[in-house]
Computed example of a mutant assay.
Amino acid sequence: MSDSPQLSLIIAVYNGEKFLSTFFDSIKNQHLSHVELIVVNDGSTDGSADIIERYAQQFSDFTVLNQENGGVSAARNTGLAVARGQYVAFPDIDDVIYPGMYNRLLEIALQNDLDVATCNGTYIYDDGRPAKKIFPSDRLSSTGVLEGPVWLEMALRSRKFLHVTWLNIYRHDFIKEHGFRFEPGLRHQDIPWTTELLLTAKRVQYVDEALYDYLIHSASVSHTPGTDDTRMRSSRHYMKILEMLNDINRRYPEQVKRVPSCHWQIAKEGLGILHSINNIEDPAKKREITQELFDRGIWSMIWKNARGFKLRWRLGRRYFRLKKIIS
Score class of each variant (00 low, 15 high):
residue 271 L to P: 02
residue 161 F to V: 07
residue 313 W to Q: 13
residue 133 K to C: 06
residue 152 L to N: 08
residue 265 Q to P: 02
residue 151 W to I: 10
residue 42 D to E: 10
residue 223 H to K: 06
residue 110 L to M: 09
residue 58 Q to E: 10
residue 78 T to H: 01
residue 140 L to C: 09
residue 53 E to Y: 07
residue 239 M to E: 09
residue 79 G to K: 02
residue 67 Q to L: 06
residue 71 G to S: 03
residue 274 L to K: 01
residue 26 S to R: 04
residue 70 G to R: 01
residue 250 R to T: 03
residue 78 T to D: 01
residue 3 D to I: 06
residue 255 Q to N: 07
residue 229 D to F: 10
residue 314 R to Q: 14
residue 72 V to S: 05
residue 81 A to D: 15
residue 165 T to R: 09
residue 195 T to A: 12
residue 134 I to A: 02
residue 184 P to F: 00
residue 227 T to W: 05
residue 177 E to N: 11
residue 103 N to A: 13
residue 158 S to P: 02
residue 186 L to G: 00
residue 41 N to F: 07
residue 217 H to V: 05
residue 236 R to H: 06
residue 127 D to R: 11
residue 267 A to I: 00
residue 111 Q to E: 15
residue 282 D to F: 05
residue 92 D to S: 09
residue 92 D to L: 05
residue 120 N to Q: 11
residue 10 I to W: 05
residue 178 H to W: 04
residue 94 D to N: 14
residue 21 S to F: 02
residue 66 N to M: 01
residue 147 E to L: 07
residue 119 C to T: 13
residue 80 L to M: 14
residue 50 D to R: 12
residue 86 Q to D: 14
residue 153 E to H: 13
residue 26 S to A: 05
residue 78 T to W: 00
residue 316 G to H: 12
residue 48 S to R: 00
residue 287 R to W: 00
residue 12 A to T: 04
residue 62 F to A: 01
residue 182 F to L: 07
residue 293 L to M: 04
residue 154 M to T: 14
residue 30 Q to M: 03
residue 250 R to L: 12
residue 287 R to C: 15
residue 288 E to Y: 12
residue 141 S to I: 08
residue 292 E to A: 12
residue 209 E to A: 14
residue 20 L to C: 02
residue 92 D to V: 05
residue 194 T to Y: 05
residue 189 Q to G: 12
residue 26 S to E: 05
residue 159 R to G: 02
